[in-house]
């Protein structure tokens, strides 16, 4: 499995640390209540198919990436910088 980092180019999976579903980017308001926080921290769609998750380019540029990939085929469609998303 190889991931194309927007800064470094295509690199081996070993350079990346996997964090989990990109849902982690949507942090609820501190006062959002137990349901929202439980959903954010624990509950997952966990799709069999296309998904977006967070990878850290640990042995490369050190950027956090949102990787668009398929959990059934391991195909990687692309990756974007988390930073760029937050600038939107």
């Amino acid at each position: 499995m190889r991931i194309t980092c927007p800064i470094c180019g295509t690199r081996d999976r070993r350079e990346f640390y996997y964090q989990g579903a990109a849902e982690a980017l949507h942090r609820p308001d501190p006062e959002a209540g137990e349901d929202a926080w439980d959903a954010y921290l624990h509950l997952r769609d966990n799709p069999a198919g296309r998904t977006q998750d967070l990878w850290y380019h640990e042995a490369g540029c050190g950027c956090w990436l949102v990787v668009d990939r398929d959990t059934v085929t391991h195909e990687i469609y692309g990756a974007t910088l988390v930073e760029a998303r937050h600038a939107d």
Binding site: D12, R13, R14, G20, A21, T71, V72, H74
Partner: peptide, 12 residues
């Protein structure tokens, strides 16, 4: 150590 339903892993 990544989410997967592939029933096969990777070489690393």
């Amino acid at each position: 150590m990544y989410a997967s339903y592939a029933q096969r892993g990777n070489l690393p």
